[in-house]
Design a protein around this nucleic acid. Structure first.
Length: 543
RNA sequence: GGCCCUAUCGUCUAACGGUUAGGACAGGUCCCUUUCACGGACCAAAUCGGGGUUCGAUUCCCCGUAGGGUCACCA
């Protein structure tokens, strides 16, 4: 397809003023990194609140590093975290990878024809050339450059074939050799024919980093690899042009090659989109700080959060607040106003300028994530919690899943303990930790041998009788105790005295242990109500 | 090493050149209390170092120092 045909096929978008077209552009080279989620959160908010477009483009031009299934995993996880996009690959009901949007293909490996058209254009206009330097040749040259302490790379006089098709500028040997190579089937790459001077710098405004100095590019960098695939530098410019990207948000590891990209935009005579370079999430490891790495950090892989049973929204909220510190204030206000936290995530107005201005990126802070997460879980209605939790259990703890789902009403009551009214528990931040807090409510799981010996046999009998006589165990049809909490406590204190025990604390502790096997549990008042009188008596009398 | 970017409590960060340098999470103490939790009150905790400019510098400039990025037929 010719360039003019391409430009007709991908017309400029008809969008309202200020609408931003943004994209995330991951490579399918492995697991899904939190960094991608972080970028997606940023892009999603920018696109949504500007009335723009959010695109997923998969950059699979490195066929050696591509891992099978990674594309699908990207699509799955992005959607699992609620970071759906307007255009790009998706998985349909049949499990097939499809794509949506008019500016595709959104898989770079399917855009080869497009790249070739522009490549042709570059070569025809003397803006790029075929280079036949071999890997060995390049390696040797590099070593020599290092030995002589000159900057390694293919630039200036080191760009062997830069002018090789111009007999007036090179020796006749080289010219002839080049003509011969062009006709041969020797392997080659296409290099950009740079005219830049690295000693001259220009200023640019990065939407995140602010005003920055960037040196002109003087390297004849590769635009097409010998396997026929484009390099990142080339592909990103072509794609972002054709897809109408207005703001290129990407990791700041790309900042150093910005000069190359600008040179390319200029070579085509295209106007340059805005750029925003985001500092990546780091991790403190002893005395050093480094990027989150797969091998060392479980939390680098977004699957970790799903495995541990974090709410996707909590992770998104955390990333949002990492990017926008003032999210804290917003979130706190939502809590104060008792608004639905998950719903209100959408109402936050994202501010690009709040992102750290380059340098080292923020450190991942799990306690902060846990804090946000526990607020979100605390607010979840029992029914919803039950549904999500059991769904999670189904794939992570089938045994417990079976126990819970055999008695949904009871389970919901258990899950709802201290989750209504004034004092709501906020100590659960992921599903993984729930079991440890409720297992003893289920007869098949509660530890045997709970008797601490505090209550002798006779005392147990009297205790049970008194609990019944004084309505401690009477519950109405709503599962509420007939006694007010305060009355209940006073009655318990009375029973404690009547049985001849002195310290109420010790009495309650013994009772707690005999009932649950744990020293720390929610208020016994609520536990009694949920367990019911028969179970309470059985557990007291057991053993 | 060259080039680029950055530097405020443990962490994320506020602060027109004038503030007792603020908040949040984490931590500590106390209160509430049948334990846990929840809640409340309080505490501790920072401007990397050195020079300038200025009446005055966290803020502007320079030099150090430290951290990050990058220098591939990887993205």
């Amino acid at each position: 397809m010719s360039i003019s045909e391409l430009e007709t096929k991908y017309p400029s978008r008809n969008l309202p003023m200020g609408a931003e077209v943004v994209r995330v552009a991951p490579s399918p080279t492995g697991f899904v990194h939190v960094g991608l989620l972080y970028m997606a959160v940023i892009c999603k908010y920018i696109a949504k609140q500007s009335g723009g477009v959010f695109i997923l483009r998969i950059e699979d031009t490195d066929r050696e590093r591509e891992v099978p299934g990674a594309k699908e995993e990207i699509v799955r996880q992005l959607n699992a975290f609620g970071l759906g996009y307007d255009e790009g690959e998706y998985i349909d009901e049949a499990g097939e990878l499809k794509e949506k949007g008019d500016y595709g293909p959104y898989l770079q490996s399917e855009r080869t024809d497009i790249y070739n058209s522009y490549l042709q254009h570059l070569i025809e206009n003397d803006l790029a050339y075929k280079c036949y330097m071999t890997i060995e040749e390049l390696g040797a040259m590099r070593n020599e450059q290092m030995e002589n302490k000159v900057r390694p790379g293919v630039y200036g006089k080191f760009a062997k074939y830069h002018n090789a098709n111009n007999p007036e500028l090179v020796s006749s040997e080289l010219y002839n050799e080049y003509q011969h190579l062009l006709k041969s089937d020797a392997s080659y790459v296409v290099r950009f024919k740079s005219k830049g001077n690295m000693h001259s710098k220009f200023q640019m405004n990065d939407v995140i980093m602010g005003d920055v100095q960037v040196p002109e590019n003087d390297e004849d960098f590769i635009v097409m690899k010998s396997d026929g695939h484009p390099s990142y530098h080339f592909a990103h410019v072509i794609d972002d042009k054709l897809m109408g990207t207005t703001l290129v948000i990407r990791g700041n590891e790309w900042f150093a090659s910005l000069g190359k990209h600008i040179a390319l935009w200029k070579a085509f005579g295209w106007s340059i989109p805005q750029y925003g370079h985001v500092a990546p999430i780091n991790k403190q490891d002893g005395g050093t700080v480094r990027k989150l790495s797969k091998r060392k950090d479980n939390e680098a892989d977004v699957k970790y959060f799903i495995e541990a049973g974090y709410q996707p929204e909590a992770v998104v909220a955390y990333l949002l607040r990492l990017a926008n510190p003032s999210f804290d204030e917003y979130f706190t206000k939502q809590i104060h106003d008792k608004l639905n936290l998950i719903n209100s995530l959408n109402g936050y107005y994202f501010n690009l300028s709040e992102l750290a201005r380059g340098g080292r990126g923020p450190l991942i802070d799990m306690p902060k994530l846990n804090n946000l997460s526990s607020e979100i879980i605390a607010q979840m209605p029992a029914q919803q919690l039950y549904k999500k939790y059991t769904q999670w259990l189904e794939t992570h703890d089938v045994e417990f899943f079976n126990i819970l789902s055999s008695n949904p009403e009871y389970t919901q009551k258990v899950l709802n303990i201290e989750r209504t009214g004034e004092k709501i528990r906020k100590d659960i931040y992921n599903f993984e930790m729930i079991k440890g807090q409720i297992y003893y409510m289920f007869d098949t799981l509660v530890k045997p041998n709970r008797d601490s010996g505090y209550f002798p046999k006779e005392a147990k009998n009297m205790l049970c009788n008194l609990l019944v006589e004084r309505d401690i165990l009477s519950v109405n049809e709503n599962g509420e105790n007939m006694l007010e909490l305060e009355v209940w406590v006073n009655t318990m204190k009375q029973i404690c005295t009547d049985l001849g025990y002195e310290k109420f604390g010790d009495f309650m502790k013994a009772l707690r242990i005999i009932l649950t096997g744990e020293e720390r549990t929610p208020n016994l008042y609520f536990l009694f109500n949920v367990l019911g009188s028969e179970k309470v008596k059985d557990r007291i009398m057991a053993e």
